[in-house]
Design a protein around this nucleic acid. Structure first.
Lengths: 142, 142
DNA sequence: GATTTATTGAGAATAATTCTTGATATCGGG
DNA sequence: CCCGATATCAAGAATTATTCTCAATAAATC
């Protein structure tokens, strides 16, 4: 998979879910930025970062790209309370810890072999499509 | 604690957290509605239900009341993706399962004695103020 | 009882996101 | 390779849930 511009049709087809995702220059750059700095940026933050390489990109296009990446399973959308959505390229099952006083969100791993089903009484016969675990608080000193 | 109108000052003082909450007729009615039908209504749904008894209440006041109840720990605010916030009077630690095809949100209990800390590798020394667990999918036949 | 503070209701304002539209770009079939 | 069908883009308008502003009322405090 080639993520460098210029865009060439043969770059298309990145996806982890149903249909293929056409990897346009805009989507490439948005995805690249998410991989480069994994600090859970908002759409607007992605917009500002991406403008360095694509000065003509619009915020609406950033939203479109993020939506496409999320729909194709390359990126996770993270929502804390009613704040703006944030985006995370970590595809492993994990939660998020938000320290508002430091203004950071960090990934929280599962203990090896553990899942939510080990602690929750899931409804009988339920099919789970997606799980979201959000913690709020203060990180330790380190 | 008296939750019936008319409002009398001695009804004040309901709270599970820091300062006391003045239990005005509006807050009473909003809280009463949440307890009466625990289907995780949005602010607007609460507004419509509360109008039966308080025809002059405004949506802004419903938001104010919900905010006050949440701040004082009597009600939990539940957020799914970017939809409107929903409100839940179940104060036990629990998660929420959202079945979009049925349009319902159900509470999901923890297994006895279990907590998130049993499955997550929490950051060393972190102080957790709040936890949110949201599941999306389809409930079983029952 | 007078003064201060909190709450209410009505509507305006805000913020994040989505929608609309016309222009471009890509795809697939012949 | 050319052409119609589709997809994507950018710009700005529109939407939606929520918050803010402010004058009026109510309750708490002095």
């Amino acid at each position: 998979m080639n993520l460098s511009p210029p865009y060439r049709p043969q770059d298309s087809g990145i996806s982890r879910e149903g249909s293929l995702l056409r990897m346009t220059p805009q989507r490439q750059e948005v995805y690249r930025m998410l991989l480069a700095k994994r600090d859970h940026p908002s759409a607007n933050e992605v917009f500002m970062r991406v403008r360095g390489r694509l000065p003509n990109i619009s915020l609406a296009t950033v939203y479109n790209c993020l939506e496409a990446l999320v729909e194709h399973g390359l990126v996770k959308q993270v929502n804390f309370e009613r704040g703006s959505s944030r985006y995370c390229p970590n595809l492993e099952a994990h939660g998020h810890f938000h320290d508002a006083s430091r203004g950071v969100i960090v990934d929280v791993k599962f203990k090896p072999g553990m899942t939510l089903a080990d602690v929750l009484e899931l409804p009988e016969g339920a099919v789970i499509q997606d799980v979201e675990i959000n913690l709020r608080g203060q990180l330790g000193l380190a």
